[in-house]
Design a binder for these strands. Structure first.
Lengths: 228, 228
DNA sequence: AACCATAAATGTGTCAACAGTTCGATCCCT
DNA sequence: AGGGATCGAACTGTTGACACATTTATGGTT
């Protein structure tokens, strides 16, 4: 084993390093949802002790990316349709409110900048996939509420990312998304907070339905999938 | 040291035990906001190794109750006025949405039960302090969204609890709160989701302003208080 | 052949010691 | 006397070994 070794960077702690490393393993689907996350195996693989690995897994558990109890083995979380619905509902609440705050707090210049960025990104087309979430992140960060930003961009983001490749696979959805993003920004520019929030909610809900419709038979072992 | 010893329960892991123990220390103000959380000191105090204590502190860091970076000592988080505002904003978004979901999903019987419980609790008066949050928790759980429930009742709840004794100290606020709770329930019973959500938001915002007005000069070291 | 009890094997929880960094105080220099 | 570098003390990060729980394999029983 030990295909990769850690030996260079020293700015951050080893636990942080391993945390990112395992995250990449999950993103690259080497650790698929439902698979067990073995402490000692990962430890020997990364060439470190079990301590940092254990710590990283605990952090992953903290942001709900792996499920684990007492002495059971940790597993990469596998979301049931119900869990996906709840995830998008929470995003709806938080991102809608963030959009409201952004409408109230953004400067006119920042709004215009965001509009132009959106349009140029859409004109480019190809890498519009990346643009999608950039828009949402921009709005969320513009809310000025760092707690909401952390929750959305730090925790939920990881979960969404696992299931996002599915929604990104639909081609004509992107055009819809662009239109909706543009409408939201119009409401923001008009300083209509209620409308902006409402539009954002609808937009997120639609995206959620999209994902939910395309992932009805993801593996969710134990007929639950929900953890903790 | 070692004023207390852990030797009986074995159902849960030691780390969980220590986690609850430190939480109690924070609630009982033995660990005030801003104070350092010393791994080895707590380890010898609880009569365990540093491992479980370390794990517990990491979990506390995960729910934002202690702040810590790289090799620095961990400290109990001390919220700046700005951070308190953001906390209540997040609660406003989440709890408002939860109220909306509850309005859509609760059965008529459950609503009537909640109304009668609220009124009897108000009639008793004395322990109305406990009732306050019970109401919110009841609504949140009635939403049926376990992710929102976990976030509100599991994470934010701990932070709010530290600063709640201040808001609870105001006497006539309780009467206000009861009236607002009652109005919210009327909207729920009328199945007016938009109104219920709006009322809940106003209610939470008012509570937040109350706390904010009474804690202008809490210690927030480093002229920031916000962590991470 | 199916089923329950038992035992090896795997994996997690805990511990005590070691290594590196930060914090605090002392000491030196201007 | 004030400011800054230096040394020591305290604390966090990391490690490898040990103890316990769970899972899997094995064997005896009905």
């Amino acid at each position: 084993m030990q295909d990769e070794d850690v030996s260079d960077r020293r700015s951050e702690t080893l636990g942080d390093e391993i945390f990112d490393r395992i995250l990449d393993l999950i993103y690259s689907c080497e650790l698929e949802p439902g698979m067990v996350v073995n402490e000692s195996a990962l430890a020997t693989r990364f060439g470190v002790s079990r301590g940092p690995v254990r710590e990283a897994i605990r952090r992953l558990q903290g942001i709900q990316l792996v499920s684990r109890e007492a002495f059971m083995r940790a597993r990469v979380v596998s979301l049931s349709p119900q869990a996906i619905l709840e995830l998008f509902q929470m995003r709806e609440a938080l991102e809608g409110y963030a959009c409201r705050l952004a409408t109230l707090h953004m400067t006119d210049e920042a709004i215009d900048k965001l509009i132009s960025d959106l349009e140029t990104a859409h004109a480019l087309g190809p890498q519009a996939d990346k643009t999608h979430f950039d828009f949402h992140e921009r709005i969320v960060r513009a809310s000025g509420n760092s707690r909401i930003v952390d929750s959305l961009c730090g925790d939920l983001y990881h979960l969404l990312r696992i299931y996002r490749r599915i929604s990104g696979a639909v081609p004509e959805r992107k055009e819809h998304a662009f239109t909706e993003h543009w409408q939201i920004l119009r409401a923001v520019k008009a300083r209509d907070a209620a409308l902006a929030e409402s539009l954002m909610r609808s937009h997120v809900e639609r995206a959620g339905r999209q994902v939910l419709a395309q992932v009805p038979e993801t593996r969710h072992p134990g007929a639950g999938g929900a953890e903790r």
